[in-house]
Design a protein around this nucleic acid. Structure first.
Lengths: 348, 348
DNA sequence: GCAGTCTTGATTGACGTACCTCAAGGTTTG
DNA sequence: CAAACCTTGAGGTACGTCAATCAAGACTGC
């Protein structure tokens, strides 16, 4: 018993091929009763449209744009690398992917840049940007023009996008707090938090979640005000050394953003023997190495490749009116410690 | 500039369509020089065969068999659920997936069951089974007959399979030790280990990794001999209660295998206030709930959906001679704590 | 009952690749 | 130098769906 085709449906429903086609592609000109008869035949025979034949015939080349900040960081490098990988893979699947760089400071120019996209030729937009009212309006405008939009990494809660591809940053902060609190090995002490800036949505959310759990579960640990270092490693280095020198009962450090190489350097240089719990974000070559060397205790991460692939799937599914598997699209808040780093040798 | 097609290749290489076809599909009857010319044209134009058209024309229906133990457990239920999900999704991609149940105790009959597969009609086999010499021979025989074979969840190191889809179980045990040791909050004490049976490869490997790290990093924690409970919840319950009652300085419990509902029940019933670090394997409804309730502290898991999808990709790629993206196929050893459980409400 | 619209059938030609046949050249071998 | 073989060209059909056409029958309202 081979797969049923449209011909089988036509025969089973006693209609012509043309009618089956009209029903399947929701074209007008079919009586409600006939539609019903065709749909019955479809479910009776268990028909599924052959994606290969459909895509081939449709001759549709989807175009997806990834709009990402132009900041240079290890994380952004990884993100772009994954987008490039998707470009190559998706090319075989009739989907062209482009990258657009958005200014990271000037939010006005960001929207201007976005407005420059040729709406007509774009099917989907995956965007990583801080939400502003003007950006929200621009995104609503894009969606009205038929562009599927999905925020990635950092959510845009007010822009009315059905889906967000990224982790729950409040949850990530909560997770960081739990790990830091339990790894610290002391009920009392002081905890320092280093972030890029509290103006960044995701950083603020992480800090928020972090505070919640610290307060609930580790009331003996006092959390210092956020040290803002604008994701710059040399600043992180400097400020981390200050904290290490000046806070005698330091029990842990939580790094919310980028620039962790500065933190690793500061930690490597210290000569006291205090037990310190260090939790940072994003698994990069630097944090990987610092985990191995015992400088960091835990890394909270998101699978960037998964984010990119998921964004593509979500956008294509949206354009094609397909449903998607929620479980497959859920981006997990991953925890890495020294012993479960990916790419370990000796994979038995 | 649209995608180049075989016609473009033919024109560019100054050969006929038939010749291009012969080269692309590695059919005989083409001079080496001509092959070279065609391949040059392919790379010059950046040609990529249109998978949709190719699959359509090839009219190939791949058949993949998942051979899994017939034991009933939450983990196996999840595994089968994911295989069923893949069945539905892959049907649209011209790939039929079947499940074969293998006897879990009689290794002789297991091989007999495997030998019953009609080699001719099968393209790929994903198998989860303990390795025995007879099984190894049977797998080598299958591979010689042209069946792509990939072990899943539990590796078959001696069967010569190029790829294993699953986590590094030694690493998983190491990870469990690190978490348990650091969560315990005490440098000295006793740790109990509950497993299905040390005859199970993956359980033994986890225990091995666990012992390594406990010995290296937490020498003050004494690890008791493995309590074998055959993955049966009621036995786990019983033995866990014994341990809780009889070991006064109990600092942690590591559950290597299944039957964790018994452990959760035993822990929920205890009335002492000792700080206890509990680490278990596999994220199921039960372990999820126990994490939330604070009965367990950490769960080591593998993404079962990822394993199934990866196995399918690996097998199909093997049959089609395609390369695959190692990063996408790497199964991670995931850590879950109370705060990073997937499917959280309030996904901001 | 007639013009007009709505519904359906029949048919056709893509889409890009796979795979087959037949025949025409070219090259080697004895 | 002819028979045998190797290489290549030309052309066709098929895969399952999409999309469009034209024609005809079935309704509607007036």
């Amino acid at each position: 018993m081979a797969r049923p085709t449209v011909h089988d449906i036509a025969r089973h429903a006693n209609v012509s091929l043309a009618t089956v086609d009209r029903v399947l592609n929701e074209r007008p000109g079919v009586r409600a009763k006939t539609i019903e008869r065709v749909q019955e035949a479809v479910s009776a025979l268990g028909y599924m449209r052959d994606l290969h034949a459909a895509n081939l015939a449709r001759q549709r080349l989807y175009r997806i744009v990834f709009a990402v900040p132009s900041i240079r960081s290890k994380f952004m490098e990884q993100l772009e690398a994954e987008i490039h990988r998707a470009q190559v893979n998706q090319l075989a699947e009739r989907c062209r992917i482009d990258i657009v760089h958005l200014p990271s400071t000037d939010t006005h120019q960001l929207v201007t840049e976005l407005a420059r996209l040729e709406v007509e030729s774009i099917d989907g937009l995956a965007i990583m940007a801080p939400e502003t009212p003007r950006l929200r309006d621009q995104i609503i405008h894009l969606r009205q023009a038929g562009v599927a939009v999905v925020p990635i990494v950092s959510n845009l809660p007010n822009s009315g996008c059905a889906h967000f591809v990224g982790i729950n940053n409040v949850g990530a902060g909560r997770t960081a707090a739990l790990l830091l609190g339990r790894f610290a090995g002391t009920a009392t002490g002081t905890v320092a938090v280093i972030a890029g800036s509290m103006a960044q949505h995701d950083h603020a959310e992480r800090r928020f979640g972090f505070d919640l759990v610290m307060h609930e579960q580790f009331p003996g640990l006092k959390v210092l005000p956020t040290i803002e270092c604008w994701d710059r490693a040399e600043l992180v280095d400097l400020r981390a050394r200050e904290v290490l020198a000046r806070v005698p009962d330091l029990a842990g450090i939580y790094s919310v953003g980028a620039g962790v190489s500065g933190l690793a350097a500061a930690l490597a240089d210290r000569n006291d023997r205090r037990r310190l719990a260090v939790v940072v974000h994003e698994l990069t070559a630097i944090s990987n190495d610092a985990l191995r060397r015992g400088l960091f205790d835990a890394v909270i991460a998101q699978d960037i490749g998964h984010i990119v692939r998921s964004a593509v799937r979500v956008l294509l599914a949206s354009k094609e009116g397909r449903a998607l598997d929620p479980a497959q699209e859920r981006i997990r808040t991953e925890i890495f410690v020294k012993e479960n780093l990916p790419g370990d040798p000796g994979h038995i």
